[in-house]
Design a protein around this nucleic acid. Structure first.
Length: 640
RNA sequence: GCCGACGUAGCUCAGCAGGUAGAGCAACGCAUUCGUAAUGCGUGGGCCACCGGUUCAAUUCCGGUCGUCGGCUCCA
């Protein structure tokens, strides 16, 4: 006999050999019916496995957060079984549950195509209807090795070789696979799944190992959740910034410059507005703006350590027989500018901001619209300071990022702290001091954060900010990196209170991250319907017919005088046609100018969100828009 | 870079068992002067990504290159 402690705190004595299912059945019949697996002392276990000891006990149903992982993992096994039935020569690698579904990597002589997914999915449905129980058994490592070797499953053999002691296997019907488990009680418990895509993937993610075929799929506890997920995928496709960028004529990437984006006139308005905003908040926060060259002597990059650690991502060129490099980061330029003069401790902190265009050679296969490019503009800044200013400065940057993300754009975000990577410069002590400084700032501000061991930059640890868009996707944008090394390598100093030279500490930081990528994120987040203050055209003026063009022109001048961006659509088309065109271009406001307006001097206003707002005076409209621009509002200021 | 799919008009896409191409939208012209999401008629527009091969003939078949897309890897 041993004792289980249930989630409500009550204790239950059970006999050895009792299964989790039997316990669930005793609690309630319904619970047993909905049970997917169970949890004992934090460990997920199969529902039909005899319990071996007591502890904290919980029945996992489809409503539990842990359920999805089990459902998806079982789905991947069922997919493997279906594949094995259709392709007996298939060899299996790994098939885990992942964030939005599952995949299985398969070694198969024939190339699968999207069409084959349908057949596999159909076979899976058959397996589900066969309702085969998942049966667990344990084997000693040697026996398991022999078992999989006999089946010529060389990938499984390799996996087992790295395990120790006994390994567990799961069997459903004729198919048995190496697996830690747990699984659904039977294949019939899989209620909603879909195969999504096909891709190549290296065995163990190593480009020197064989390329396997990976099938991605997803599974949910019920059909509605699956439908909702598929809807989200569709919505994401509709919002794809590459599509919207083309449709709204904002930006594009052309074959002539893979990874080097073009900004069209309208995209440039958006970009400049964002940069103006950036300059404004940085001036206010005590930053000075600099611009450092894009091409600098290669020697500089040897000094900075980039050549050692980052060479394979850099572009090089020769000028007058001397070697030069195109900058992949802005820091060395900023270091040079700091070093141009004698600095007193009274001058610190010195905050140099730079909208710096950097170039990085990224693998061709990774390029993706504005999200992943080969040149981009960092909204960079380097803050030079004394060690005792670190916390206040980091705190200031955290405040700025919070203001921009949360207050201006309304994004939620989370924070991660990354520590010393394998390829790094500097001593353990320096890294520890730097990491503790970042940790201290976060703790004192009461910011929640997650730690990523080994994910820091080569010159220092960092704090990353991941914002969440309206589809729940997260994007790493802002980052704060502490650096004790670069100032030393560039022999930077300041004269302290004691009259001696000291080495300053540097913080590298970005708020948007990459302007290009931030614009892509905004495009997808707003689906192209940017808040008025960012919209390339804010007001479309539509004269009903030729006789109203004059008032349209006058109105346009009046709006432009108030820094409102306008466009007149005087095309020889019907009103409805031009309204529709403006609507599809996601222009926030449309003004219809006809006889009534010419007569009264008032204007009739249509908003892209609320539709016809009726007439108002020019003054009221202008005052409203000026306010909307100034407050960077995401809502239409006019009430219907 | 690697695996797979793809590349046809400004855009979205048809088409071709090999005989140098078509639609809708957009553009342009004419008529229309219009009140809140598409007026009608007409016209122009393509080295069918690029380079080679097979063939009497290639946009179509084959090979290569470049690019795009989905992944792997990497990352702002």
């Amino acid at each position: 006999m041993f004792v289980l402690i249930l989630p409500d705190g009550s204790r239950k004595e059970v006999a050895e050999g009792t299964t989790a299912f039997m316990v669930a059945e005793e609690i309630s019949h319904r619970l047993a019916k909905e049970a997917i697996c169970a949890k004992l002392d934090g460990q997920l276990i199969d529902i039909n496995e005899p319990l071996k000891s007591g502890g904290q006990f919980e029945v996992i149903t489809s409503k539990s957060p842990e359920a999805l992982e089990v459902i998806r993992h079982s789905a991947s096994h069922i997919m493997a079984q279906a594949i094995k039935r259709l392709y007996p020569q298939a060899k299996f690698a790994i098939g885990p549950a992942i964030k939005d579904g599952f995949y299985y990597d398969i070694d198969l002589p024939e190339k699968l195509s999207e069409k084959d997914l349908e057949a596999i999915e159909a076979e899976m449905k058959k397996i589900v209807s066969e309702n085969l129980p998942f049966e667990r058994r344990e084997l000693l490592q040697d026996n398991a090795l022999a078992y999989f070797a006999a089946k010529e499953e060389q990938y499984k053999v390799e996996l087992i070789e790295e395990l120790e002691g006994t390994v567990s296997l799961y069997k459903q019907g004729e198919f048995e696979d190496l697996c830690r488990g747990p699984h659904l009680p039977s294949t019939g418990s899989l209620k909603a799944f879909k195969l999504l895509s096909l891709a190549g993937a290296y065995w163990r993610g190593d480009s020197k190992r064989p390329m396997l075929q990976r099938i991605y799929g997803t599974a949910f506890a019920d059909k509605d959740s699956l439908k909702e997920y598929l809807r989200l995928l569709e919505e994401a496709a509709k919002r794809d910034h590459r599509k919207i960028g083309k449709e709204l004529d904002l930006y594009s990437v052309r074959d002539e410059g893979p990874g080097f984006p073009f900004f069209h006139p309208k995209g440039m308005v958006l970009r400049n507005t964002l940069e103006d905003f950036w300059r404004k908040i940085h001036r206010k926060a005590g930053y000075e703006e600099i611009k450092t060259p894009i091409i600098l002597n290669e020697q500089l990059w040897h000094n900075s350590g980039h050549w050692d650690k980052y060479r394979e991502n850099m572009y090089f060129t020769v000028i007058d027989d001397n070697n030069y490099a195109v900058k992949p980061m802005n820091c060395p330029g900023a270091m040079l500018l700091y070093g141009r003069q004698l600095v007193s401790y009274r001058d610190l902190p010195l905050r140099y901001g730079e909208l710096g265009l950097v170039h990085r050679h990224e693998l061709s296969g990774t390029l993706h619209g504005l999200m992943r490019v080969r040149c981009f503009t960092q909204d960079d800044a380097h803050i030079f300071m004394t060690p005792d200013q670190i916390e206040a400065e980091i705190s200031g940057v955290i405040d700025m990022i919070d203001y921009v993300y949360r207050q201006v754009f309304g994004f939620n975000y989370h924070v991660e702290l990354s520590t010393k990577p394998e390829r790094s410069l500097g001593s353990e002590e320096i890294w520890e001091t730097a990491t503790n400084a970042l940790r201290g700032a976060l703790n004192h501000k009461g910011v929640d954060y997650k730690v990523n061991e080994g994910d820091g930059a080569f010159y220092g640890p960092k704090i990353d900010f991941h914002l969440q868009d309206c589809l729940g996707r997260t994007w790493q944008c802002g980052t704060i990196q502490l650096d004790f090394l670069m100032p030393e390598r560039f022999h930077l100093n300041y004269i302290g209170e004691d009259g001696e030279k000291h080495t300053p500490v540097v913080v590298h930081r970005v708020v948007f991250g990459s302007i290009e990528r931030f614009i892509a994120i905004l495009t997808e987040h707003f689906a192209g319907a940017f808040p008025t203050w960012l919209s390339p055209v804010q007001v479309e003026i539509i004269p009903v017919s030729d006789s109203h063009k004059e008032m349209a022109e006058k109105l346009r001048a009046e709006l432009e005088d108030n820094d409102i961006r306008t466009h007149i659509d005087a095309r020889d088309e019907k009103l409805g046609y031009r309204i529709r065109a403006a609507q599809m271009e996601k222009v926030p406001y449309m003004l219809v100018i006809g006889d009534k307006e010419v007569e009264s001097g008032n204007i009739s206003v249509r908003s892209r969100t609320a539709g016809d707002l009726g007439t108002m005076t020019r003054e009221d409209f202008i005052a409203g828009l000026v306010k909307e621009n100034r407050t960077m509002s995401q809502e239409c200021v006019f009430k219907k």
